[in-house]
Design a protein around this nucleic acid. Structure first.
Lengths: 100, 100
DNA sequence: ACTAACCGTAAGTGGTGGCTTACGAAGCTG
DNA sequence: CAGCTTCGTAAGCCACCACTTACGGTTAGT
């Protein structure tokens, strides 16, 4: 999931799809990579649950999948809370039990 | 930033550091990779603003940086709102102006 | 001061992933 | 039924990245 958004080109594609649903050729026309490359990136994004596709004639329209971001958001919140707990614990026991 | 958390080993390191501040050797002892590898990963995480380090004798203690997650969270919220807008626009204009 | 512990960095290597070209499948249009 | 369009997949290539070993620097302990 993070790996999916890790690649710059793929993140660019994701952002464009999030802005408005587009077809593969449309995306490839505005990007400095070939159309098959866009196809492969979209496949990764789809497997990660970040986008969804639908057939429209000979074209396939890709749109963003809000559900995908929920998982990421939940992941981040988890660690945000964890960091709070760690900080709180460190504040309550200033200089006690210095870990080996 | 996403690239930093994209690598599995690095994400594992980040999660352990988030759970509790640790030294480099401590992390390397529990992981199937060498100590220099951990060092390099920590460098990437630090450059990404996800962790912060501090000297403690000969050891360096790495802890999580909550501020780093804020940027990620802001990024995700941005696209979440954007997806809402797109969905809303699509719902209000059912079958009008089918894009070329 | 000498030794040991802990760490960062340099250099080198192997594997993975992103890209391209080439091909085949599916669908509208005349 | 051709012919054009749009797309996914296969095969292959190349660069980058994660990892290891080797080395040097800093700090604590005796």
């Amino acid at each position: 999931m993070f790996a999916a958004l890790g690649d710059p080109t793929r993140r660019e594609i994701f952002e464009r799809v999030a802005a408005r649903p587009q077809s593969v050729g449309e995306l490839a026309g505005d990007l400095p990579v070939s159309r098959p490359a866009v196809s492969q990136h979209l496949r990764v994004l789809k497997d990660a649950g970040l986008v969804s596709d639908g057939a429209a004639g000979t074209r396939r329209i890709y749109r963003m999948n809000p559900q995908g971001l929920d998982h990421l958001s939940a992941y981040l919140n988890h660690f945000w809370n964890e960091s709070l707990a760690v900080f709180k614990a460190a504040a309550e026991q200033p200089t006690k039990e210095r870990r080996k």
